[in-house]
């Protein structure tokens, strides 16, 4: 009699016999609080673990890692939290994961994970899928199926991991931040890793006009179509919106074209090679529209396009469009907003 289905029900698969089990997440506490991107990864790991019948274990490192933060990780969905204050050396991190043998290992695609994940993957000589935008489990093989953008989001390549540990970094802002549930319980343990001195980082002044685009409610973005006084016009439009909506964070940004012209810095470039944004309102002025730009603005709740060219691809992507010269449309908009 074939009892393999029963074994599967009991969770005895080939991988488990080898000892690879559970989903691990590496979270980082540079500041004395948890980062939303790490929590989002834990939320997703929780989903995956429930469909695998596995536990979610989190390793929390960084200067400000503490037992209290580790307890918070439990409340956000982890089954066990391991913490240590400091930056582990690559070797000790490898030894840690060789000992614990994660079936799946996840990082946030943010500072820390971006460097740690590929270095760890190379030490373990295993695969790594970066910038994951979607994850699921192939239950038969117990393998991770990951969708990651190629050509900057023009398409997503779906790959299936074949060997344990299956490592991925997950884009921030794709999955919701899980609910805080203070009734959850789990083990919290301090770990002994080999720590290295803090990386030599000196904070410097951010460039002028800087509001992090990810935090903006409204983004006014300009493109190559803004010749001459055009840039000044969109600054005035941003000012008019700020007068009308004093409680909203309004940021100025630009397309790849505006960046190439030298009108904005790299921190203001909305493009898949720059920043991906998700504001409530995105106003694209004089931007023709490339798919790199569309990819970066996909999550905006409402997109308004203003362009003189009725055939500009941006109109196919926008919720509302105005065809007209920027020099006429923007002053009219400012007037309406101020009235």
């Amino acid at each position: 009699m074939d009892l393999s289905f029963l074994e599967q029900l009991l969770g005895a698969s080939a991988e488990e016999e080898e000892g690879y089990r559970n989903i691990w997440v590496v979270a980082i506490a540079w500041e004395p609080h948890l980062r939303p991107c790490d929590l989002q990864v834990i939320g997703k790991a929780r989903n995956l673990a429930d469909s695998l019948g596995a536990y979610v274990n989190v390793l929390l490192v960084g200067d400000n890692a503490s037992e209290d933060l580790a307890r918070e990780l439990i409340a956000y969905g982890a089954d066990a939290a391991f913490w240590g204050a400091g930056y582990p050396t690559g070797r000790s991190l490898r030894d840690f994961f060789e000992k614990h043998k994660p079936e799946i290992l996840l990082f946030a695609d943010a500072a820390g994970g971006r460097k740690m994940a590929p270095r760890l993957a190379q030490r373990l000589k295993c695969a790594l899928v970066t910038h994951a935008a979607d994850l699921s489990i192939n239950a038969e093989e117990r393998s991770l199926v990951v969708a990651a953008p190629i050509y900057h989001g023009a398409a997503y390549r779906v790959v299936e991991c074949k060997a344990n540990p299956q490592i991925a970094t997950i884009q921030a802002g794709i999955f919701p931040t899980p609910e805080y549930d203070s009734w959850r319980s789990g083990d919290v343990e301090e770990v002994e890793l080999v720590w290295k001195p803090q990386p030599p980082l000196t904070p410097v002044e951010p460039p002028e006009y800087y509001i992090p685009l990810q935090k903006a409610d409204i983004i006014i973005a300009g493109g190559r179509g803004l010749r001459g006084s055009g840039w000044q016009l969109i600054e005035e439009l941003a000012a008019a919106l700020a007068r009308r909506l004093p409680h909203k964070a309004i940021a100025l940004a630009g397309s790849r074209g505006a960046y190439d012209e030298g009108w904005i810095g790299p921190q203001q470039m909305v493009d898949l090679t720059g920043h991906t944004v998700a504001p409530a309102l995105y106003v694209a002025v004089g931007i023709r529209g490339t798919f790199q730009h569309f990819g970066a603005t996909e999550k905006a709740r409402c997109i308004v396009a203003i362009n003189h060219n009725p055939d500009a691809p941006i109109f196919k992507h926008a919720d509302y469009g105005i065809v007209g010269e920027v020099e006429e449309v923007i002053p009219a908009l400012i007037e309406v907003l101020d009235s």
Binding site: A155, R157, G321, V323
Partner: peptide
């Protein structure tokens, strides 16, 4: 260590509404 499965394209966005009239 990985095998490619397929390509997935992001959904096409709905065509927007063009506001007509003078500026």
């Amino acid at each position: 260590p990985t095998t490619g499965r397929q390509l997935r394209l992001p959904p096409a966005r709905q065509m927007g509404f063009i506001v007509e009239g003078s500026p």
